[in-house]
Every structure is written in C-alpha cells, then in structure tokens.
Computed example of a mutant assay.
Amino acid sequence: MVEAILFAAFEPVTLAEIARRLPSGCDAGTALDDLRARYEGRGVEIRRIGEGWAFRTAPDLSHLMENERVETRKLSRAATETLAIIAYHQPVTRAEIEEIRGVAVSRGTLDQLFELEWVRFGRRRMSPGRPVTFLVTEQFLAHFGLESSRDLPGLAELRAAGLLDPRPVPGLTPLPEGEEEEDDDLPVSPAGEGDDEIFED
C-alpha cells in the first residue's frame, strides 16, 4: 500500500499523510523503512524530499534521463549589426560602435553576443578614459567556418549576396542624448557589480 501511494503521488508524501491513508493499526514508518530497503541498489529509490517521501531515479543512473536538444536562437537586428561592426572594425570600442550605427548600444545587445561567446573583451585603448575594446572570438570564427577575421566577405561579395541594401535603413537615426535603443528580442540583463566600469567609454 505504501508503494502504491508513493508511486501514484504527484509530489512527495509525508509520513503523516501515508499513515492517514493506511488501515488502522498499520505502522507507516516500519512499512516505509522496509520498502526503502527493498529498493536499495535498484534503478529507482525512495528518497526523502523535504518533509515528504518520493520515488526518484538512482543518482548513478541520472545521466540516462538527460535530454539534449539544439535550441535555435535568432539574433536581433541590433545584435547582428553590432556583431558585424566588431568583426570588421576590431578592436573597436563601444563609442565607435555607436558612432558607426548611429544609435546607442543597449546592454542587452552586448549581453547576447557575450552569452553566445562570439565576442570578447580586448585591450583597453591608451586614450582618455581607457575605453575597453571588443573582438570576435574563436567560437565566432568556427561557427562561420572562417580561419581568421581576414576571411570575412568583402564589400563586393556582400553586395553580390544581396546582404547590402543601398536604401536608407530605418531605425539608424541618432537617438536623443542619453537614450538607448530597445532590443525586443532579448531582455536586458540586470547590471552586475562592476558593469558600469567595464562598459564605460
């Protein structure tokens, strides 16, 4: 009966709840101990979870339950443009990226590129404020099948592939001073300790 109760339960069951469900005179504690001993060394075991008890996969077999899947993530337009600028102009500072794009770079845009491990910090410039620079990573080169950043397609190749639009691109007009673009595809991560110093140009 204890086995059936635990097997059917959606969440861990307390000893008091087990005892309440058993016929009068049954010793729920002894029954639970006997059942735990019976399941020792098997694929599943009875474990205490907080104040309750439940069936769980044996720890040494947990790897069999892992489910790996490939998650496709689409880069936002802001992230794509920022990545392209870093790749073609590296080492480049945040201020230089903003000057080329014509808008302020949001924290979420850079966070997305760092999370993908496609961008890394470079050396600080020997200029007022010692701004940090950004570079593309080996992971970026591997993902796009490049031996080095020198293998990036040139202007003629990009035009031939239809990746350059000669018409004005909406959204690349300068924002009022102090404002940043909105990046709808990725929420801005909370600023961590020292972020302001890292990203300050």
Rank of each mutant, 00 (worst) to 15 (best):
M1A: 10
A4V: 05
I5R: 03
A8N: 07
A8P: 02
F10E: 08
F10Y: 05
L22P: 03
L22N: 03
P23E: 11
G25E: 13
D27Y: 13
A31D: 06
Y39N: 07
E40T: 06
E45R: 15
E45A: 10
A54P: 01
F55V: 04
D60R: 14
E66D: 08
N67H: 15
N67R: 15
T72C: 00
K74N: 08
S76G: 14
R77T: 14
A79W: 01
T80N: 02
T82Q: 00
A87F: 05
V92W: 02
E96I: 00
G102R: 00
V105A: 01
L113A: 04
E115S: 10
L116T: 03
W118V: 13
R120N: 03
S127T: 15
P128G: 08
P128M: 06
R130I: 08
P131D: 04
P131R: 03
T137M: 09
E138G: 15
E147Y: 10
P153W: 10
E157S: 09
A160I: 01
G162Q: 12
L163W: 10
G171W: 06
L175C: 12
L175M: 14
D184K: 09
S189N: 09
P190V: 10
P190R: 14
G192M: 05
E193V: 13
G194F: 04
D195S: 04
D201L: 00
